[in-house]
Design a protein around this nucleic acid. Structure first.
Lengths: 225, 225
DNA sequence: TCTTTTATTTTGATTTGTCAAAATTCAATC
DNA sequence: GATTGAATTTTGACAAATCAAAATAAAAGA
């Protein structure tokens, strides 16, 4: 069985791979800072992962998951996200806090327990932040979402997913009414001010900087999921 | 924060201290085999715990928890037992399996989450095996229980607690109807055969060897808890 | 008391995951 | 082309937890 550390490296590589163009390698520096370790540590760990055939490592290029590594990363993500659903839906924890809790629990749950939990929760497809929950098979094909900055203005949209786990940011979104499922309209964009204004249905309009706006993903209100 | 390993040592020392006369030291060999490590490993670990003031260590005598060590051990036990209640009561896992699951989860739960869980479960006082759940303050004073071998014959008793976590043993008890809460009568004892016979209310009588019988603790049926 | 047995401790090594700092490589600039 | 700079790798060291095997102490027998 992979150690907690190995699981965390694989999960982190997976997540960073997602955020960049197809087939591109994740640079070692990026991995190191994401894992909060020195670059040298990341290098030696990645060599180790490479020996275990969990990643492809190209010296001075970066890393990418192998099929096996990918499968393991998805299992970790599945545990993480199902735990988050449980913490919010069942125990009523604040969605802003559950990420850190799940970060620990994701390494402590057996397959059997996970299946029970999944059934108990009614086989949810998304976690409280709108992140898709991988099935035992793999990651469901993602619907195409647009972030607030890129979204068409004046169209009825719905918040689908938040791409940041920082509790302060999440609490801010909650106050504004920008939580997954919420109906919104993007009402304006100002390139000079580097800002975008969004109007959550039944709430006050909110103006965000584009770096914040890019973390909030929308789908057309008409679209099921 | 103590490591998972440290938590496990403290928990194990606590449990073994319980099983022996007041103030007596737990021998290193017993600790080593309970932890499934070599004696040398136990010695070096215990020295380490002693430096952290978590145990008193008497070379060639054994170990005993300090007040601090005791408190930490009880926190671990509290997490373990609340998790067990959750797994059985909420997710419906078999009581024979939950010990191993809880063994992992007990190290991954934050104080905040634990409090939520406790409230959600209705502040239970005992886990599925009848083991008392320590409160945030400490371990509740244990009611005096008798094992099946020592119990008076012909009196209405109730199963209070099972002092063994082996799934095979627990499943056996379930088949016989010897689970916590069950009304039973001890109907006979045979010193020569080293056996004892117990009659669970509404089930068939069961004859057990005394070593098995000593793992099943009873209280008078009249006594609340 | 002397010897044997058993429990415990010591010693030296190993693995995993980490850091600091020096060395290297590659790309970019002059 | 030579030099600078940034990213990466290498090297040597360390802490935690472990084992195997040798050394020691205490208890039990003779």
């Amino acid at each position: 069985m992979p150690s907690v550390t190995v699981e965390n490296y694989l999960k982190t590589i997976y997540l960073h791979q997602q955020r960049r163009p197809r087939e591109e390698l994740v640079p070692m520096g990026e991995l190191a800072s994401a894992m909060s370790v020195t670059p040298g540590t990341a290098t030696s760990m990645v060599k180790n992962l490479s020996d275990q055939e969990l990643v492809d490592y190209e010296p001075r290029g970066g890393v990418r998951l192998t099929r096996t590594g990918d499968k393991t990363a998805l299992q970790v993500l599945r545990r993480h996200r199902l735990v988050e659903v449980f913490l919010v839906e069942v125990l009523g924890l604040d969605w802003a806090e559950v990420h850190d809790e799940a970060e620990e629990l994701e390494h402590a749950i057996s397959d059997k327990l996970l299946d029970r939990l999944d059934a108990f929760l009614g086989y949810p497809e998304f976690d409280p932040h709108g992140d898709p929950i991988p099935s035992a098979k793999g990651m469901p094909k993602a619907a195409e979402l647009v972030d607030i900055v890129e979204a068409p203005q004046g169209r009825a949209m719905r918040v689908a997913r938040i791409k940041d786990q920082d509790p302060a940011f999440l609490r801010f979104l909650e106050r504004c009414g920008l939580t997954p499922g919420q109906l919104v309209t993007v009402t304006g964009r100002d390139a000079v001010a580097d800002a975008v204004t969004v109007h959550p249905d039944g709430k006050d309009p909110v103006t965000l900087g584009t770096s914040a706006g890019r973390k909030i993903m929308l789908r057309p209100a008409s679209q099921r999921r």
